[in-house]
C-alpha cells in the first residue's frame, strides 16, 4: 500500500539579511491513512515550517523549499502550481493554524467563513452550505450551533474558536488534517474537551491527523506515532510505545525527564537539559544536539548521525551512541 503522505529529504530555508536559516533539514517520513502522528519539539525547531512546506504556504521570500519531495495520496505536490495547490488545500489536506485569531478573520462572522470554505471546494448553494456549516459547528460541540453562525470570532471563547477552526478544517472531509498546536493556548479542562472531540471525530471520520505540539503529555494518549524534532531535523521517530518506553535519543530522554508527572513521587530533581538549542543560522558540523549532550564524543562533533532505523518503521533514531546508551540504562 502506498502511504497517504510521504516526505523525502525535505529542506526548507529562509534567506534573510543575517544569513540562511536552516529551518527544515532533510526530513523524511511517511504517514498511513487514518494514522495520528504527533510532531513534538521545542520552539523554533521547525515544526510549523515543515507543515507549511507540505501545504506550500511557506512565506516566499524569504522562504524556499530547496530540496525534497512531498507525495500526498499519489500526487507529487512540489510539482503543483499555486492554482492546483489551492484545490488540494482544504480538500485533500487541511491545516489548523497555530493562532486561531489570525486564521479566523475578525471582520466576518464565523458562519460566513465556514460557508466560504465549503463553497470553495463543493458545488453547493448558499443555503446548503449554511445548513452544512450549522451541522459542522454542532459536530464540534458548539452549543446552539445554528444561532452562533452569525457570531463574530471575538464573541467566541478561546475554546470555541478552536472548535470553529476544527469545523472549518473538517468542512471538506480532508484525508489529512494538520493541527498546529491546536490546544497550546487553552486551559487544561478546555484542552481535555478538544482532545476528546478530536479522538471522537477521528473514530467517526477516519482521517489521518498530524498533531503538532511541544507537549509530550497531550499526544501520548492520542497519537499512534511520534516524530521528535530538533534543530529542523527528526532525531527520533516511531510508535508511541517505543518513543515513551524505549526512548533512545538523549534529547528525547531529556525532554521526558524535564516533565514533572502527576503520578510520580514529587520532590525529586527534574532532569533538565543544559544549555540552549543551536542557532539555525550556524548549525554545527556534527550532531546538532552535541553541545547539550552528556554522551557526546569526538565523533559526535565531527559527523552528523543519520536517522537510523533500529526497528523498521517502528523506531528510528539519529544518534551515534544509542546502542551504548540503551545498554547502560
Amino acid at each position: 500500500m502506498t502511504p497517504l503522505l510521504e516526505i523525502k529529504n525535505l529542506k526548507t530555508r529562509f534567506f534573510t539579511s543575517e544569513g540562511v536559516v536552516k529551518a527544515v533539514n532533510n526530513v523524511s517520513y511517511s504517514m498511513e491513512s487514518g494514522e495520528i502522528l504527533g510532531v513534538v519539539g521545542e520552539s523554533g525547531c521547525g515544526k510549523s515550517v515543515h507543515a507549511l512546506s507540505i501545504m506550500q504556504l511557506v512565506q516566499d521570500p524569504p522562504g524556499k523549499i530547496t530540496n525534497g519531495e512531498v507525495w500526498l495520496d499519489g500526487k507529487d505536490l512540489l510539482t503543483f502550481s499555486e492554482k492546483e495547490m489551492k484545490k488540494i488545500r482544504g480538500s485533500d489536506v487541511a491545516m489548523i493554524f497555530q493562532d486561531p485569531m489570525t486564521s479566523l478573520n475578525p471582520v466576518f462572522t464565523v458562519g460566513f467563513q465556514i460557508v466560504e470554505a465549503l463553497r470553495l471546494h463543493n458545488d453547493m448553494t448558499k443555503a446548503e452550505a449554511r445548513e452544512r456549516a450549522g451541522e459542522l459547528l454542532a459536530l464540534v460541540g458548539i452549543p446552539g450551533a445554528e444561532q452562533r453562525l452569525d457570531d463574530y470570532p471575538h464573541q467566541f471563547s478561546g475554546g470555541m474558536r478552536q472548535r470553529a477552526m476544527i469545523a472549518m478544517g473538517l468542512s471538506c472531509e480532508p484525508k489529512l488534517l494538520i493541527a498546529d498546536e491546536p490546544t497550546t493556548a487553552l486551559d487544561v479542562t478546555i484542552q481535555a474537551q478538544i482532545v476528546d472531540l478530536v479522538k471522537k471525530l477521528q473514530d467517526d471520520l477516519g482521517m489521518a491527523i498530524m498533531w503538532i505540539t511541544h507537549d509530550l503529555g497531550v499526544i501520548a494518549e492520542m497519537a499512534d506515532r511520534i516524530n521528535v524534532m530538533y534543530a529542523g531535523a527528526i532525531i527520533e521517530s516511531g510508535n508511541v510505545r517505543n518513543i515513551y518506553k524505549k526512548t533512545r535519543h538523549p534529547y528525547t530522554m531529556g525532554l521526558l525527564g524535564s516533565l514533572p508527572r502527576l503520578d510520580e513521587d514529587p520532590g525529586a530533581e527534574l532532569l533538565s537539559v543544559p544549555g540552549l538549542p543551536p542557532d539555525l543560522l550556524a548549525l554545527p558540523k556534527g550532531c546538532a544536539f552535541a553541545a547539550r549532550c552528556g554522551y557526546r564524543t569526538e565523533k559526535c562533533l565531527e559527523e552528523k548521525p543519520p536517522l537510523e532505523e533500529i526497528d523498521g518503521r517502528e523506531h528510528a533514531v539519529a544518534c551515534w551512541h544509542w546502542e551504548e546508551i540503551a545498554g547502560s540504562k
Partner: peptide, 27 residues
C-alpha cells in the same frame, strides 16, 4: 478532581488507563 484528571500524562499506558472527567462549557 476534574482539573487533575485533565492533566495529560506523558505515558501512553497510563494515559490509556486514566479516566477523564470532561467538564462542559467555559468558565
Amino acid at each position: 478532581q476534574a482539573l487533575m484528571s485533565a492533566v495529560p500524562i506523558p505515558d501512553p499506558d497510563l494515559a490509556a488507563k486514566s479516566k477523564r472527567i470532561i467538564l462542559d462549557g467555559d468558565i
